[in-house]
Every structure is written in structure tokens, then in C-alpha cells.
């Protein structure tokens, strides 16, 4: 699994954790993590370059042409680097976007301060759960997100980026978990007094729809 390649070095330097974007648990989060590592490498290189350029400035005056700096470095060099970065970003963005491909759909309703989730059981009936979202593992899942009161944000760092829960709108986020298991999620948009404790879990199942114990009841 591609995620594994990332996890190994990451765990070493202490970047892992139940909410770490650097320890991705699914395809979407993995793509973004790669993007990050590449950008980080570029940023480190560029910072070093600047430090060296500035250090070299100390000393006797030098005969340097203006255009090298303003046009060569300022315009051409930066445009090349930036275009490449933008291109990579758009490409990854297109790949992880939700599409009309019949992915499993679940619902998330945020409120002050908690989450109510809905998935469909094998009979096609909606099943409501509080604070725990069930999804199938190993395939993309679309979460339809909305809010009952103020703006919140649905975020499962190990599975995908965040998407806001906005009253009056429904947003579609695509997440995916490679392996069955529990993934931690939280509200990322400040929403008042209970914001810090507005956590939830996502449970990815091998079999779908999952056979759940009784605690979940159909409305």
C-alpha cells in the first residue's frame, strides 16, 4: 500500500497520531501528504537558496545587472516554480474530487456541539448514529455535510481534507479508508463554546452495510 511508504519515515520523527495528516489512512489523504512532502522539499531548497544569496551579499560591492534579479529571478524563476506547484495542486485536486460514480453516500449533520450521521442499511433504511460514522473500507465514500445551526467543519485528517458544514447548504466530501478500523475526526471551524470537544469517530468496515449492534436504531 502506498500509505505504508509514508508511514515508515514519519513514525520515526514523531509525526504520527490519531489526527495526523502525515499518517494518511486512505487514498485521498495519501495524495495530499505526498503533495506536502514535495512542497516541503521545495521550500527547504528555496529557503537555503535565499540564505546563501543573502550571505553572499555581504562583502565588497559587486557589479550586478538589475535584470538578472528582477526579470531572471523575480519573474522567470518564480513563475516556473509557481506554475509547477499550481499544476501539481490542480492535478491532485481533480483526482480527489467527488464524482458521479455511484460511490456510497452517507450523511453528516453538525450541530452545537456534536455530530449526527446517517448511512443506509442493507434494506435501504436510513440508520442514524451519534458521533460515530460508519463507512465501507477500501472504496471512496461521499459524505453529504450540513449543519443545523452555525458553521462547523467536517474533518478526518487521516482520510481526507476538511469541508465545512453550513446551514442551508449541503456539501459533498469524498473520503476513503484503505483498511478497516477507527479514524478520529473533529470539527475544524470555530463554532462556540463546545468547539474543542466536538470530536467524532469514523469506523471503516470490511463488509457493507455493516451489521451493527442494537444501539443504533432506525428513526
Amino acid at each position: 500500500m502506498r500509505g505504508g511508504v509514508l508511514i515508515a519515515p514519519v513514525a520515526l520523527i514523531g509525526c504520527s497520531g490519531p489526527l495526523s495528516t502525515l499518517q494518511p489512512g486512505g487514498a485521498t489523504a495519501t495524495e495530499i501528504a505526498w503533495l506536502w512532502w514535495v512542497m516541503l522539499a521545495g521550500a527547504v531548497a528555496l529557503t537555503m537558496m535565499m540564505v546563501v544569496l543573502i550571505a553572499m551579499a555581504f562583502g565588497a560591492p559587486r557589479d550586478t545587472g538589475a535584470r538578472v534579479w528582477t526579470h531572471g529571478m523575480g519573474l522567470a524563476f518564480s513563475l516556473v516554480v509557481l506554475s509547477a506547484t499550481l499544476g501539481a495542486g490542480l492535478w491532485v485536486g481533480e483526482r480527489i474530487l467527488p464524482r458521479d460514480d455511484g460511490a456510497v453516500e452517507v450523511r453528516a449533520r453538525a450541530f452545537q456541539w456534536g455530530w449526527r450521521f446517517t448511512h443506509t442499511d442493507s434494506d435501504g433504511n436510513p440508520v442514524e448514529t451519534d458521533g460515530l460514522l460508519h463507512i465501507p473500507a477500501g472504496q471512496p465514500v461521499d459524505v453529504l455535510i450540513t449543519s443545523e445551526d452555525v458553521i462547523h467543519s467536517f474533518w478526518v485528517p487521516r482520510l481526507a481534507g476538511k469541508l465545512d458544514a453550513i446551514p442551508g447548504r449541503t456539501n459533498r466530501a469524498r473520503i476513503s479508508a484503505d483498511a478497516p478500523g477507527t479514524y478520529a475526526g473533529l470539527c475544524a471551524e470555530f463554532c462556540g463554546l463546545g468547539h474543542a470537544r466536538m470530536r467524532f469517530d469514523v469506523q471503516a468496515h470490511d463488509t457493507w452495510p455493516p451489521a451493527l449492534p442494537d444501539e443504533s436504531e432506525a428513526p
Binding site: 495528516t21 489523504a29 495524495e31 495530499i32 503533495l35 506536502w36 512542497m39 506547484t85 499550481l86 501539481a88 495542486g89 490542480l90 491532485v92 485536486g93 480527489i96 467543519s153 485528517p157 481526507a160 481534507g161 476538511k162 469541508l163 475544524a188 471551524e189 470555530f190
Partner: peptide, 11 residues
């Protein structure tokens, strides 16, 4: 400014 990364790092 890179959209997918922003989705992770935002907020």
C-alpha cells in the same frame, strides 16, 4: 494556496 493541501491545513 494549493487547494488540496489547504483542505488539510486550513483552520
Amino acid at each position: 494556496a494549493i487547494v488540496p493541501f489547504n483542505w488539510q491545513a486550513h483552520d
